[in-house]
Amino acid sequence: HNLTITQGKLFFHYNPKLCLSEIHKMEEVSGTKGRQERNDIALKTNGDQASCENELLKFSYIRTSFDKILLRWEPYWPPDFRDLLGFMLFYKEAPYQNVTEFDGQDACGSNSWTVVDIDPPLRSNDPKSQNHPGWLMRGLKPWTQYAIFVKTLVTFSDERRTYGAKSDIIYVQTDATNPSVPLDPISVSNSSSQIILKWKPPSDPNGNITHYLVFWERQAEDSELFELDYCLKGLKLPSRTWSPPFESEDSQKHNQSEYEDSAGECCSCPKTDSQILKELEESSFRKTFEDYLHNVVFVPRKTSSGTGAEDPRPSRKRRSLGDVGNVTVAVPTVAAFPNTSSTSVPTSPEEHRPFEKVVNKESLVISGLRHFTGYRIELQACNQDTPEERCSVAAYVSARTMPEAKADDIVGPVTHEIFENNVVHLMWQEPKEPNGLIVLYEVSYRRYGDEELHLCVSRKHFALERGCRLRGLSPGNYSVRIRATSLAGNGSWTEPTYFYVTDYLDVPSNIA
């Protein structure tokens, strides 16, 4: 807008934040220059609390790290170098490059900038070799853009010569660093050979998330399962459950009422301010606690030095998902009996873990797994792929695949051998790939016309006998059925096997 004052003059007093240069501009645009008398524009009460600059400061050096910015700028000295009290560095987070010096300023003089007072450097006698002032900004957020400017702080001049310097606002972004852990990993099994893994992005990506790394490792069953005799009275049979499938998407929606109208769909109840505040506090606490764990609990591995020492970490090797089922080394339970199943799973520490690289999504279907087997899954978020990966501390989750139908069934015939004193040795093959492992066998036998009897055969007993022995049988026709019990439950009964026990007292003698 054009402003013209045809008559009258300007009068400025007691404006401590208004620089004289701005008042002189007002004289020019209003056409009143030359009308004012000496005392109409006070030299001592206008701009006496402001830094009124008329020179431009330029930054000469900028260096960044993930949490620091090192700045240096060209030296500046007023005509009387004693008038320079120091520099004021202003900075704040700036997602967009549209910041002005006066953003967030209120009537009390406060604003949204963080201000650092910096002492002037030592003055050199040689004007050509003056030290460049600077400042190291610490405690910054990774991968965050900051708006920065600097200006001088000078003393009051009796001659009211307006001098000083100020830089333009520059924008500097800190470097990326390792992201925080992925949030809320959930693993479920939808079949006997697959596990579905879902997660949420890290709360602090500290860069642009480029991919996720998912490692999985087959877990050995508890050692007590191999040692305890679950045929003993009072000892509860062990059981394991597989990871249940995901709930429906509708039930997972946030901010939804727990109660549904019987007449149909209901609208979600909005969260109160107290609920939102509580969630923010919980989120802040979780982030602080995660940072504490990362800094205190997890110790970084030592990389190899120039002395030739090897990095103890196993090298990563990509495998196809079809090879995942046989990740671990199978060892027989008892070496003397080769027909026992290889369900003991000690994992070799030198073995390469299978892994998958996930790009542009937060889910993965891990296939080719062994049925009813526990897996430990390790999830890392990465925001750099080359020249070397920059990934987060791992988040861990466990899951067990679903049982395989008929995996616990005894394959092959049940054979028998009759000894003296009416002892019958029953023999059968253990299931080759049971659900988890076989903890015991149930032997059901009966003599024709009598009630059915049951015998429990422990895992250890089966390994020693290759089956079991029935003792003290009365003469007669017998039928026997056997079924295995694994961590997933009972298998199917075998087809009945028949044998006849004679009275050993009636056996004919070869003595003449």
Rank of each mutant, 00 (worst) to 15 (best):
D503W: 13
N208H: 10
K302P: 15
E350R: 09
G325V: 10
Y212K: 00
E356F: 13
V423P: 01
G264R: 12
Y445I: 02
H425R: 12
F246C: 14
F215P: 02
K233S: 14
R353P: 14
I438L: 09
H454R: 13
E221K: 15
L213F: 03
S243T: 08
H416W: 10
F298E: 02
V414P: 08
A381E: 03
Q219L: 14
P300S: 05
L232F: 08
S305G: 04
P403M: 04
G325H: 08
I366L: 11
I276A: 07
L228T: 05
S239E: 09
R319E: 14
L473S: 01
D323R: 13
N383F: 02
E281F: 10
E279H: 06
H461K: 12
W428F: 04
G476F: 02
E378H: 12
D385N: 09
S458Y: 08
L228C: 06
F499M: 03
Y230N: 05
F462K: 08
V297E: 03
N383Q: 07
L437E: 04
V334N: 08
T210P: 13
Y259Q: 12
R459S: 08
Q252F: 08
Q219V: 12
G476N: 00
F298K: 00
G306N: 11
N490S: 13
V439P: 09
D291R: 03
F372H: 08
Q275W: 08
R390W: 12
H425D: 04
R313K: 12
V439N: 04
S486G: 15
T502F: 13
T241G: 14
N339C: 07
N435K: 01
P312A: 15
E430R: 01
K406V: 11
S341N: 14
E351Y: 15
K302E: 08
E247D: 10
F355I: 12
K278P: 06
A407F: 11
K361G: 05
G207A: 07
G476W: 01
V297H: 06
E362Q: 13
D229A: 05
S284N: 03
K432T: 13
V457L: 14
D261S: 10
N477V: 06
L277M: 12
L235N: 08
Y212P: 00
K357Q: 09
C468N: 00
I482F: 02
S509N: 14
D503G: 14
V501Y: 11
S492F: 11
V414N: 03
N206S: 04
R218T: 06
F419C: 11
S239V: 14
S479L: 05
S274I: 00
A395V: 07
G476Y: 00
K361S: 10
G374I: 04
R318I: 03
K271L: 07
Q275Y: 04
F499C: 03
D506M: 10
P300F: 03
F289K: 00
G491F: 02
N360G: 09
I276T: 04
Q275N: 05
H425I: 11
T241F: 15
T303Y: 15
T347M: 15
S304I: 15
S363N: 06
D222T: 06
R240H: 14
H454T: 10
I276C: 02
G436E: 03
P475S: 11
Q380T: 15
Y441Q: 01
Y375V: 15
W493E: 04
F285G: 04
P403L: 03
D291C: 06
H461L: 10
E433T: 15
S392M: 03
N383Y: 03
Q252Y: 13
P245H: 10
Q252M: 06
F337H: 13
S223Q: 10
L280N: 13
A463W: 11
F215I: 13
Q384L: 09
Y498R: 11
A405E: 11
K302A: 06
E417R: 10
V345Y: 11
